[in-house]
Simulated assay, not measured.
Amino acid sequence: MGTKYGFGKTVVSSFEAAIEKVTQELQKEGFGVLTDIDVAATLKKKLNQDMPPYRILGACNPPLAHRALEAEPSIGLLLPCNVVVRQDDAGKVQVEFMDPNAVLDLVAKPEINRLASEVRQKLERVLQAL
């Protein structure tokens, strides 16, 4: 499993066990989980839409983040590192990591470019409202 912007694999465990294991392994490498977004719960609450379990963990290694911020203060736009733990429609648990090297390249997919353009417009409106 891999994309131009991430890499990962299918794990043989329950969804909750995968969350726990990923968190523990991140800690071993100096990462803490700053954010834990339960996408499935949010979509259920806000849109009454069901989907398999899907969580986005925002992982941060403080010493590395500090060095990055000193070198480039705007790098915070790309932080923290996202880790996705999700259950697919077949019930398999996927763990995916944002590829830090992706900041050096663009995602070469037209649908992503269109989405990026929409997001840019929204951000420009936010900026104009400030």
Rank of each mutant, 00 (worst) to 15 (best):
V126K: 11
E29A: 09
L106I: 07
E118M: 12
D50Q: 07
M1R: 12
P52Y: 02
T23A: 03
A18C: 05
Q94F: 08
P73W: 00
F97S: 11
I56V: 14
K9V: 05
A59R: 02
Q27I: 05
K44L: 13
T42A: 14
P52W: 02
T23M: 02
E118G: 11
A129H: 11
H66T: 13
G91Q: 08
E25W: 08
E124S: 07
C81M: 13
K122I: 10
G32T: 01
Q27P: 10
G2H: 10
C81A: 13
H66C: 09
P100K: 01
P63K: 04
G6A: 08
G2K: 13
F15P: 01
V33H: 00
K109Q: 15
A90P: 05
Q128C: 02
K28D: 10
I56S: 11
P63C: 03
A102T: 10
M98P: 05
R125T: 04
V103L: 03
E72C: 09
A102V: 10
E111A: 14
K4N: 11
I75G: 09
I75C: 12
P73A: 01
L77M: 15
K45R: 14
D50K: 06
I37T: 03
T35I: 07
A59W: 01
E16I: 04
I75F: 15
